[in-house]
Design a protein around this nucleic acid. Structure first.
Lengths: 330, 330
DNA sequence: CGCCCGATCTACAACGATGCACAGTCTATC
DNA sequence: GATAGACTGTGCATCGTTGTAGATCGGGCG
């Protein structure tokens, strides 16, 4: 910048003013400076600006792991949304481990980022305190509610109810759920299960515990495994609601292996609308949770906070949609 | 740091020396300083250190898009490998657009990263010059060869030959390829096609142009579309080699929709071994390209360069493996 | 006993940008 | 014609850290 100033015959500060679009500069001066910048191929030193301004232009995104398609697609959307606002994204993987999730909040890396978008999977209501941090934070998902931070989430209960209702509308009555988490009162599993129960109740269908299958990590392998256990339990089933798409895809896998017709014998619906859902065999009906909307809202909110927005903390609930595909099409 | 120094009764520089493990410090002094650090909960200002040292501890990872499972899984591996070496990863998506890929190389963001791991998909040999950059760069993939940079790649020709040979070993003779790129001489498409041709030649099977189906982007939709065109062309087919897994999964989708038995009528093999391949119906045979190894090697090499390694540029070729699953199991 | 050397610590000047206060130079306005 | 107020541009201090050179102190050695 010093060299540019010398070449243009102005002060260093004027060069700074030009690159920062300070309004009161004569066109002639601006032109001189810009010419000098071009001639020397000058690039601003970001580290210096960061030091001076106390900002880095980087936001953190903490999620379980990118191998899970839902999070990969979420990261994709977040990166795009961030780009549109001129910030870049540093991704950290927590592996859905509670300790690791807590570390992310206080890690040295928080120094490097202006704020954090955090999608916890292992934290619970007992970790509320840990989320009271002194930097801008936007929390995604349903693990923890009502704290002093911004929250972008979706209406899990309503969406799960809609998914279940969709199956009921097709005449299914023995609807199993796979991927439940016993004892959980918060979190996607609990909320989606609530929606499932609400739909049954609304239609006067009794809830049968043998149709609720526990399953820890929401991977395909878990879905496949849950389905095997379900079928081998001998209970009657005419539909399966996978609490996410990976589980549902795992279910399709098991059903296919056992030559059970989908949706003829058993209909299947998932949750998340990951890309795979459109390409499985049969294609998977699911809930589209408004991923783009969640990402855009989260980034927008975070950037506003970084910019000093002092509004009260907000909770944004995104829209969802039932997507009907082959796995439930009669 | 100033406050810590005052509290500990030493100079600022001594505090700096302590946190940087400078060897010549009396244990008593070190202890005093560490106590002060703990008491004040002091955290180093990374921006200031970055400015002073001209390093950020961040490496860039430029790839087409995270929605593509192969790249999501690659990013996952790269982030883990980077973490093991104490650096963090900034991901940039190029959308497989040539212009965008060129921009990534000169972007202002390169200031923020100490080096770049770059997986181009649209660049070609004519862009060799653009890759001659003044920061550490490790290139992944097969788009461009033999330049002045480090390269981590896999043996595409051999792997594709092995995949094809696997089909031939099962008695298949009318083996189609989907996802070919006409006119390309470099890049995964061209190399894998070479391997395919080599396998046919080695087994005395004539190459039939009607079995080579063009397809631009290697998405599932493309694979589904290619397969439809292939089947409607009326040519005889008893196996399909998808140049990547997404294409092969798309093919499975179309075959399923048309009620064509896999592998009974048509066997299918892919390339990449993404997680989906284990959970499709039927499960997909494929080539496992040693993703972890590629990621680890790339990060290791980049970090070495950043550390000032001045060795000649290296080209590392990773191992691969044929993974047999249901889609080719007789 | 004096000198040299290593261990230990300190002062100062950077790294490259920007906020602030201030000095001129020009318009409007009365 | 004087004066307030907007335009333009400058110099200096400063963000928090580390490299460099140098000060101080003991101990070993000839």
């Amino acid at each position: 910048m010093h060299d540019v100033a010398k070449l243009a015959g102005v002060s260093v500060k004027t060069v700074s003013n030009v690159v920062n679009d300070y309004p009161h500069i004569r066109p002639a001066t601006r032109e001189k400076v810009e010419k000098a910048i071009a001639e020397l191929d000058y690039k601003m030193n970001i580290s210096a600006r960061n030091l001076r301004q106390g900002r880095t232009g980087i936001i953190g995104l903490a999620l379980p792991e990118l191998s899970l398609p839902y999070f990969a697609e979420l990261a994709d959307s977040v990166i795009r949304a961030a780009e549109a606002r001129g910030v870049v994204v540093l991704i950290e993987q927590t592996g859905a481990d509670r300790q690791h999730e807590l570390e992310v909040l206080t890690s040295e890396r928080r120094q490097l980022t202006d704020g954090l978008i955090f999608s916890p999977l292992a934290l619970g209501p007992e970790d509320t305190e840990a989320l009271k941090v002194d930097y801008p934070l936007v929390v995604l998902g349903e693990r923890i509610f009502g704290g002093d931070w911004d929250h972008v989430t979706m209406n899990n209960v309503e969406a799960a109810r809609a998914a279940t209702q969709h199956l009921i509308d097709q005449g299914r009555r023995r609807i199993a759920v796979i991927g439940a988490h016993a004892g959980e009162t918060m979190g996607s599993a609990a909320l989606r299960l609530l929606g499932y129960q609400a739909a049954l109740a609304a239609n006067g269908i009794p809830m049968d515990p043998s149709l609720v299958v526990e399953g820890g990590l929401w991977h395909r392998a878990t879905g496949a495994d849950c389905t095997t256990r379900l079928l081998e339990s001998g209970t009657t089933v005419d539909a399966i609601f996978g609490l996410n798409d990976a589980l549902a895809l795992g279910a399709l896998h098991t059903l296919h292996a056992r030559r059970i017709d989908v949706p003829g014998e058993i209909a299947v619906i998932g949750f998340d609308d990951i890309e795979d859902a459109s390409y499985s065999s049969p294609t998977l009906s699911t809930i589209a949770p408004g991923r783009e909307q969640i990402a855009a809202t989260a980034v927008e909110q975070l950037v506003a906070r970084i910019g000093g927005d002092g509004e009260p903390f907000r909770r944004v609930v995104s829209d969802f949609e039932v997507v009907e595909r082959e796995s439930t099409r009669v």
